[in-house]
Amino acid sequence: MSSIGGVPFYILEFGDELVYFTPYTITLFLLALVFTVLVILSRPERQVDIAFGGDAYTTKQILKDEMRFRRFMSIACGLASMGAMVTGDIFNFTLFTAMVGITNVGIVAAVKSPHVQNAAYQYGLVALSATVPLFGAAAVYAASTGSLSMIELARGTLPAVPIIAKALLVIGVVGEGMAPFYAAKAEMFRAPGAPYVIMCSLSSLLIFLRVVEVVMLG
């Protein structure tokens, strides 16, 4: 572990509530925290639409109810990402990742625009099907090594993790919002209201960064 994300500062071993902080995970955790605080503090932007060919422009207003719901979902998304960054348990990691997918749909679900709704629906379908390889990977991890603890896996005393488990884990995370499945997610950014939609991209990129570390253990 010390050769991947740095020497751990702190390890909390409490059953499956395993948490550890290496320089890598603490960086990611702090960034998720900073952006969650920004979400709590900021008022949403008012997106400007230009009537081309003239001087006219309109700004979009976000109603209070809509803002409250989206802010709640963004904070939930931030908390789920923070959990995924610091957990030391494969199953908890997959659980937090699935939660990130759900809250991402929630962030844009309140926007009253057919394009955004459609994109959110399509993204939701991909994220939903991605949970199968995601949880499947956790199952294969447990079945082949007998442990879900990343600390145990990093020690190298357990049987090697089969490559299929790592591949399933990566496919699951990628399905939650990385490269080839990204098209629907980009459409979601049509939604006005800056600090909230940023959590969509931030959370999925953070879990991708974490999974890079996870697959290198064991």
């Binding site: 991947i4 994300g5 740095g6 290496t22 320089p23 890598y24 960086t27 990611l28 960034l31 960064l209 890079v212 570390e213």
Partner: peptide, 8 residues
Amino acid sequence: GSLLVIFG
């Protein structure tokens, strides 16, 4: 330090 941190 870790290359992964710079990558992050």
